[in-house]
Design a protein around this nucleic acid. Structure first.
Lengths: 344, 344
DNA sequence: CTGTTAGCGCTTTCAT
DNA sequence: ATGAAAGCGCTAACAG
């Protein structure tokens, strides 16, 4: 690989001059510039990214940090990435996706900072060392989702109004006449689970109704999402007849719910209403009747996050900002008034 | 940001020793190692990626190079990325997605090699400077799709059997009794368009039937995929009654075909058969009747490409390999025998 | 407008 | 097993 010295020698100028021809950071006469470019072309020279970035402390790469455990990206993630890429395009930023196993990353010999100017962090947890670490490094950071309470004022983030949405869904189901609604929530350690739980509880409280312990179950991650939906529905509905509606964390969880309902010979929506907290792959033939859900607009989440991040990258002073991305409930045919409602 | 010198000073050892503690490339006594690690933790030190990579010429990042024009990733691309990520996971590789406008990249001040150990290149063209350039640099490279004829023996690639699939689809439609089949093919400059065209022609030839000029149209990219399907169908079918079937490049093109058919009051499949050369989002309610298509298994394409690439990255000698990913036709309800067939 | 020189932070010989 | 010093290829500050 030819280096800047080779070009300098061939064009009979100093390396500083060659550098300036490429970076355009200081004016170079047309003659010299042409000579350098010509030499570079002949040698097939391109500035070395690593050397350049090491010297000027800029990579024009942003990172996307995902949970190490996740090994299969959902449509939600895919749209989100799409949104991020949208924003990078044309502004000359590349995207580095870091999906390494925590086990791998924690080994001493693999420790190293990533070559990024800033990062977008997904799936924040109630206790999240990743955020703390990045805050210490004072590196530009945007979280998608709500950061832990303690750091909320200090970090920029973009989020849906999960609390409000959960409340809205719950109100809708209560309005249909349901009394006991099983909430198959996200993992307890995620901040999103906290927010959705609050929303669910608020809806009950506002109507003066009570929630029983055990009506909210969170996915401890030892099961896949689908298994979680399946197992919980099978176990809880066969034991207690009381649940007439289920709010599932994602469409995949809902898929498990459908499967269990089928085995329990419960007809959806007559005997069981189902609402999902996402809106991926909803047209799968496995989802009959069509599933009601929430359009979280993941592409907008990604777009706004990237926008905030790139803004931070270009500023010395970085005030923490937050953006709420609008989401809307989509009512399809998986919910109805509970059959027994008249009989009580 | 603390550097290796800070740690060395604090642990009272040389920087070479600190380096070895982290890289584990030469033995260090337990006492010294512990002292260094302790100092590193106190200083919150992490090796600098750029400096390390500059010195040892390895980044453990692989790049994904997409066409600059594309600004919205399809499900096909998303699954493909998913497959690549799958393979990176656990082996400690990160993925750099480079989706920059050609215009941006070609400006002198933005020229620079990417910080990658190798690259996966998408959508190869009949003339593809990107491939030529990378071949010159002797950088590990895997193409998804068929490389230009001239370079085929020298580059590794993974591909579907596009020629065979196109032939199979065409045979199927001919078998149903169609005589004139409009092929809304990919852009003429892509190698995939060439292969699919050959397959289409072969099917006709094998049955001793002839293709008229104009039965194959390729998307010149001035229109979106959907517009392409819509405009071509509207124009060609209202002008010539002869076409009773259409092979569409992608589901999105097919969506345009459906729309145009609706406006022309042509019933699918009775009056018009439609077959798509992909299988994304097929369950959209906009696609009634369900669309026949080809499951190209993009996740497998991505996975195999990453596997080949990582294999190349770890070897000095890199023989060009190729992998064919199996694809299968999916027959749904968008194709039938043409209505007029009995009347002739 | 151009040349010179001192780093950027790490790895890697070569000594010891 | 550890230290010392010479790069990796580029940018940036200073001179002129």
């Amino acid at each position: 690989m030819p280096t800047i010295d080779d070009v300098a020698r061939m064009a009979k100028v100093s390396k500083g001059t060659v550098s300036s021809v490429f970076s355009k950071k200081r004016p170079i006469s047309k003659e010299v510039s042409d000579r350098v470019l010509e030499a570079a072309k002949q040698l097939n020279y391109k500035p070395n990214f690593l050397a350049r970035s090491l010297a000027n402390k800029e990579t024009r790469i942003i990172g996307l940090v995902m949970r190490g455990e996740k090994t299969n990206l959902s449509q939600f993630h895919m749209s989100l990435i799409n949104g991020v890429l949208q924003e990078c395009y044309g502004r000359g930023y590349r995207l580095l996706i870091n999906l390494m196993s925590a086990e791998y990353m924690n080994r001493v010999e693999n420790q190293a900072s990533d070559p990024v100017d800033g990062e977008i962090l997904l799936d924040p947890r109630v206790e999240d060392p990743r955020i703390i670490e990045r805050l210490k490094l004072e590196q530009p950071l945007v979280v998608i989702g709500r950061p832990p309470q303690a750091y909320e004022p200090r970090v920029s983030y973009v989020n849906n109004d999960n609390e409000g949405l959960a409340c809205e869904i719950t109100e809708y189901l209560l309005g249909l006449g349901h009394r006991r609604i099983l909430f198959l929530n996200a993992a307890a350690y995620s901040t999103v689970a906290e927010d959705r739980e609050s929303g669910y509880l608020r809806a009950f409280r506002q109507q003066g109704k009570t929630v029983e312990v055990g009506d909210i179950v969170s996915n401890d991650q030892s099961l896949t999402k689908r298994e979680f939906g399946y197992e919980q529905t099978l176990t809880l509905l066969s034991r207690h007849q009381c649940y007439t509606a289920i709010i599932a964390d994602t469409v995949t969880v809902a898929l498990g719910v459908y499967q269990a309902a089928h085995e329990l010979q419960l007809r959806i929506p007559d005997q069981l209403s189902v609402f999902a907290f996402s809106d991926d792959s909803v047209f799968s033939p496995a989802l009959q009747p069509p599933l009601s859900g929430v359009r979280l607009n993941p592409d907008r989440l990604g777009e706004e996050a990237a926008r905030l991040l790139l803004e931070q990258c270009s500023q010395a002073h970085r005030p923490a900002k937050r953006v709420v991305v609008a989401a809307e409930l989509v009512y399809r045919d998986s919910c109805a008034a509970p059959m027994q409602v008249g009989k009580l």
